[in-house]
Design a protein around this nucleic acid. Structure first.
Lengths: 215, 215
DNA sequence: TAGCGCCATGGACTAAGGTCTGAACATGCA
DNA sequence: TGCATGTTCAGACCTTAGTCCATGGCGCTA
């Protein structure tokens, strides 16, 4: 049988927050904080050593972030339930954590009691996701279904789209790439068609957005 | 004379983090946490009541954020030193806090000992700013010096710029605003001139950027 | 090797963007 | 009252953008 206590490993690079979690969870009946780590690397080592029932894992950390750490811990300790802690995160990261095996997501703003509830649920195999995080993850999922139109572009087309996104005219792009303006026009037509936009203005805005999302 | 203890009021909407701060600072010699608050409103009341030497204030909170709270506390308790706590914040907010009277800025990732050092320094009238925060504030300051070309635009021109930024043609903008296409063209010419850009594409990119910065 | 997709180009044409000049009307300020 | 500024529109004119059609070279693969 299992111990009467659920063992918890707390991982967060912020000492003050970690302190808060440790202190609060220790006061909860049935829970025992068996270790702390300030980095993903240290967390993996401790997890292998202690084989805790639950790992509380901050998503944003320097070095290995929460996602990478979750993957490695999930591989090394399949019996350990992983609970992600986050402020309000990038939807893609949330999805990454889900793929890595984490099933519970808690906002850092929760109270000690709520956190304890989630920890117990996670240990029992249940998953908990904070409402606001859930909606973000759904958004990321729907976005994931839609294939990126950028991938349909050839290398040349992507290059020209990028230049459109800096505000250059066809003539200037032709000069820059040592191609005729006619050729650029040809590419622009293709790009507009593939991206399903109506003008170079919309294409430029599209380029600006995707540059920003994935620079 | 003053008490031998420095009295501290801790304000943060995250219970776990607040717990960590309180617990850690209480362990520091010469410091006494005399109160906690989870919101700006509660913080002001407590500050007036307790007149603490230092207020530790989280920047991002629902309701009154750290800036607003800092202003009111600074007004109500001029003798109290305000120390802002932040994860990694919007430069404009940092500047706002500075104008509100906060002189110390600490990243939430600091250790308990460092935080205690900053608190003692703040009580002595010294200011402390985390290095990465300092650079962000400098950026915000230099940006503040540069006058925003958007301000030179009339309301009508701004409206049309916004529509350009959504990818509409002149004809479509005219239809939408019940104006002739000629008129739109006239405005576009003015806008390009005032923003110092060469085409509607550049104007659209400009619009997209400024929408993003200040939505 | 024949076919396919990417790259590059030209001509001809239409649509949209942008400049310049000029002008009417309203508002508000000196 | 007069003058500046913002808003609205028009005609003439030129430039840029975008479409359609056709051509040819290059490399890959069925």
């Amino acid at each position: 049988m299992m111990s009467e206590f659920l063992s918890v490993l707390v991982v967060d690079d912020h000492p003050l927050f970690r302190q808060g979690v440790v202190h609060s969870l220790s006061a909860e009946p049935g829970l025992a904080v068996v270790g702390e780590a300030a980095s993903g690397e240290a967390a993996l080592k401790l997890a292998q050593e202690l084989m805790p029932d639950i790992v509380l894992l901050d998503i944003s950390m320097p070095g290995w972030d929460g996602i990478v750490t979750a993957e490695r811990i999930a591989t090394a300790c399949p019996a350990t339930a992983i609970v992600m802690l986050t402020v309000s995160e990038d939807p893609d990261k949330l999805l990454g954590a889900f793929k890595a095996g984490a099933r519970s997501y808690v906002l850092k703003g929760v109270s000690a009691h709520e956190l304890a509830r989630v920890v117990r649920a996670a240990a029992a195999g249940d998953s908990y996701v904070s409402p606001s995080i859930a909606s973000e993850m759904l958004i990321a999922l729907t976005r994931e279904k839609a294939p990126d139109p950028l991938q349909e572009l050839t290398a040349r087309e992507r290059e020209i789209l990028r230049l459109i996104g800096t505000g250059l005219t066809n003539r200037e792009i032709g000069l820059r790439l040592a191609l005729s303006e006619k050729t650029i026009k040809h590419y622009v037509t293709n790009i507009l068609q593939k991206l399903q936009v109506r003008s170079r203005v919309e294409a430029a805005l599209y380029a600006a957005r995707s540059m920003r999302d994935a620079p």
